[in-house]
Design a protein around this nucleic acid. Sequence first.
DNA 1: CTGTTAGCGCTTTCAA
DNA 2: TTGAAAGCGCTAACAG
Lengths: 337, 337
Amino acid sequence: MTVTIHDVAKRAGVGSITVSRVINNSGYASEETRQRVLEAVKEMGYVPNRLASSLRSNRTNVLALVMTDITNPFFTVAARGVEDVANKAGYTVIFCNTDEDKEKERKYVEILMQNRVDGIVLVPSSSDSESVETLQQNGKPVVVIDRRITEKQVDQVRCDSVAGAVQLTQLLITLGHRRIALLNGPQNVSTASDRLVGFNRALAAAGIDPSKQVVISGAFTRESGREMTRQVLEMSPRPTALFAANNFIALGALSALESAGVRVPEDLAMVTFDDLPESLVVSPFLTVAAQPVYEMAARAAEMLVNRLAGKGSESFEEIVFPTQLIIRKSSGTSIQS
Amino acid sequence: MTVTIHDVAKRAGVGSITVSRVINNSGYASEETRQRVLEAVKEMGYVPNRLASSLRSNRTNVLALVMTDITNPFFTVAARGVEDVANKAGYTVIFCNTDEDKEKERKYVEILMQNRVDGIVLVPSSSDSESVETLQQNGKPVVVIDRRITEKQVDQVRCDSVAGAVQLTQLLITLGHRRIALLNGPQNVSTASDRLVGFNRALAAAGIDPSKQVVISGAFTRESGREMTRQVLEMSPRPTALFAANNFIALGALSALESAGVRVPEDLAMVTFDDLPESLVVSPFLTVAAQPVYEMAARAAEMLVNRLAGKGSESFEEIVFPTQLIIRKSSGTSIQS
DNA sequence: CTGTTAGCGCTTTCAA
DNA sequence: TTGAAAGCGCTAACAG
């Protein structure tokens, strides 16, 4: 029924291992033999069976990127970063969405291990994710990206969320703001907790009591951003500035503010983490701490590829990229307080 | 080294086939045996090898979505539609980006066949894509989505681009526009050619000579949208309305218009195909012909899953969804011509 | 430069 | 309800 390597071998009048060598460009083969084999392959419409090949060789040449939500432009850019590097190194990439759900993450990791992917780039759904442990126990190289994981020996690539939050907060303070609301992500995600740390640090350094500021913890979603913003708008005195912990929260905030007729930055200043990709924005307006997502993802993929090639460093690497402060209109100008 | 099914079998004191049955919930197994097997599985940290399983059973339980660009929100929504349905049916989904490149598409299809995925949802990079033929020759079920393919017997799911373009064009005509510029995608993609057909049809029906209208063919990208818009702005007499053939072209147009200080809709009216996902838009502004992307993708996945379950219809199905005209501000009000 | 042998880990087939 | 034997298609290891 299906054409196998043996059929091709017979047709070409060679041994099947020779066909294997020609197909995979491994080992020697005389030019003449090579031609005959390739011809037979074409004539018979032979499609190598990677399942068999991988079973035997113990390599699939497949990597996986486990992330929270491909719907977020942040991650779709990350996906391209991983894919580009991986493809160049001869790997195919599989993408998985965990929706910030620990159980979904566990399931995907299980499936990936069953399918014997060679390595994994992981955006852990929460700080106490057990995926790294599971994977390492099974001898699968992992690189954790974007978020920290508690007490784990593992390769990591991420941005300096603390420093980025400090920059954004300092900017607002410099502009005269003394009541700033932080619309944050879930506490159990390191990017959220780190941004809170940076927020507090900048406030304290400026002699402002952090405990008197408004900090709301929600989800990294637009809907949550709207909801948190509504809460802020009902406060009195109302904060004069908003610090959104990621792009989706910022979009939700903008939408809620517009509904309420609150102008940015005239009535309320705003800053946020994560820039939106140029392709999706008509005219950039938000003051942001931008993360070099593509580079981070590409770097993570490189580390993985290197480990698989036996070229990785002995110890685990931890790479922290700086954020870039981009000041635009949403943060406004100095205010009188 | 690795724990195999035999190791588990030995530990549980049963035959390996029994372990297989318990793991896959196939065939009979007494409750006692089942418990002993599951215990052994857990104790030994056994991870079934799907490569071996698939090699033997000739099923991978993996589907693939081959699309042009996951960076486009249109496709990220489509991805979720396929994934949700597929997961529910017990399949994992692999995503591939072709970047509208025929060669890349060919390569991915090749890899997917080598990996013996069970079926494929395909957004063909161009109307003359040969992927369908290749896949069908290898007995792989395919469902073509979003775009038509010339002269092919294959399951298809898409939107009625002609009717959508007619609606958008009619709206502009009704508002008094007589000089409309169509910023289109590449000619060899059916959604582009169909939208041109609808555009012309609506004009002709209104007694306007289509051949006197401005039609530019570019790519479905933001950069191309900018470039085409610049061309339009230099024309004299300048068109009074813009018809963008997809969301990225529209975003590029908006950006170019803003740079040029041209206001929408006051100075120039605008309509476009494809709505942007709610999560990415602060306040919807564009008048669009919206496509039910998620539903289309889900339907395509269903067809595929059904075929694989032997429940598909005898003949090939062709499902065409209607577009939904959503009138917002960008199309403006009636003008005097 | 080429081939033989064996076996990767699982499930199908048949038998009990 | 359970098991033994065979083999899916390929490549590692060795030999020539």
